[in-house]
């Protein structure tokens, strides 16, 4: 199990020391480090184009192509991320459908493409594993990452796919764009209340200042919109699986990838949103002190089942549900 190789990307210019998953091989790590340092200052998103007239530097293309093979090698370093992706999308889709029906039981909900026409932001998109799925499901998707090379990789991968290459994805109405920026910069640029759905998967556990990061993400969500997070709980089980086993013992990922103290427990996220308001006059995102209504927020555990070769969403309230990897969803109050 490579529970720790799930960092979804780099998220912020200010927090990151280990902006994305370091590959185990020294050569690859050097390549990544080089790209990170040399390319980072470039502020303009640089998207390789398929048109013959582009000024694509072939050396750069070759270089990013090597990195790309890391992100998109389904048997490699990021294999677990690929396996986890359908499970995350299932959770996202389920919550969208559930909430739409909650708002209006008679609503004509597109259960297959509940993201159709919605503005979607993927913070820390990495190689674009989640962003591509969100776009295919009809989301007008923007993937952002603080790592320039990740944005290159994601753009290049999407460019090879005719369904993602065009600005609008056929009948689904979805589209996909990548931008090299951080959540904070994007907030400054777009202003608050910009996206119907904001996702940030496997990023929170790498953040130095999670409260500030959560605040930026939360502000980007439109009133009545959704914030999806996934991260790792700070439990002995999580320590054992993601640090002791995956890093120290089995060396699936480089030691130091994860920092136990940065893991966030579900109840800490809940507490944050119990006291969080989008504005001085608005209501808290989660109201009341008792059990949380599923209409406001929800936590679901996620576990890799080796003999099935897939990640499963654990039942609500199951014993191990929130012991290691989990998904968290919260809805921004409509009146906020």
């Amino acid at each position: 199990m490579r529970l720790s190789s799930l960092c979804h990307g780099a998220f912020s210019s200010t927090y990151a020391r280990a902006p994305f998953q370091l590959p185990t091989s020294l050569a690859a790590r050097r390549a990544l480090t080089r790209s990170y340092h040399t390319n980072y200052p470039a502020q303009n998103a640089y998207v390789p184009s398929t048109s013959s007239g582009s000024t694509v530097n072939q050396d750069e293309i070759a270089h990013f192509s090597r990195l790309s093979s890391l992100w998109w090698d389904e048997h490699g370093e990021f294999g677990q991320l690929h396996k986890m992706n359908p499970t995350r999308v299932k959770f996202i889709r389920g919550k969208l459908v559930e909430s739409a029906l909650e708002d209006d039981l008679n609503a004509n909900v597109d259960e297959i493409r509940p993201l159709k026409g919605k503005a979607v932001l993927d913070v820390g998109c990495g190689g674009g594993v989640l962003s591509e799925s969100l776009a295919r499901l009809g989301g007008i998707t923007l993937g952002i990452d603080a790592s320039h090379s990740n944005i290159q990789i994601a753009s290049m991968h999407a460019a090879a796919d005719p369904a993602l290459r065009s600005r609008t994805i056929g009948h689904t109405g979805g589209s996909l764009e990548y931008k090299h920026t951080s959540a904070e910069d994007l907030l400054r640029e777009h202003g608050p209340n910009s996206f119907d759905v904001v996702c940030s998967m496997e990023v929170l556990e790498h953040v130095n200042n999670p409260r500030s990061f959560l605040d930026s993400c939360a502000q980007l969500v439109k009133p009545g919109g959704y914030l999806f997070l996934s991260t790792i709980a700070r439990t002995p089980l999580a320590y054992f699986l993601t640090i002791f086993m995956a890093e120290d013992l089995l060396r699936f990922v480089a030691p130091g990838t994860h920092t136990y103290s940065k893991y966030v427990n579900p109840h800490e996220l809940e507490e944050f949103f119990r006291s969080y308001k989008s504005s001085l006059t608005g209501r808290n995102w989660i109201t009341g002190n008792g059990p949380i209504s599923r209409v406001q927020a929800e936590t679901r555990g996620m576990m890799y089942v080796p003999w099935r070769g897939e990640w499963v969403l654990l039942d609500r309230g199951s014993k191990w549900a929130e012991g290691c990897n989990y998904l968290f969803w919260v809805r921004k109050p409509v009146e906020a």
Partner: peptide, 20 residues
Amino acid sequence: DALSLGGDIGSYTALTPYAR
């Protein structure tokens, strides 16, 4: 199934359930 989860139907991940 893969389509309904926004997957890339040519990817190994999407096809694995078939082989399994």
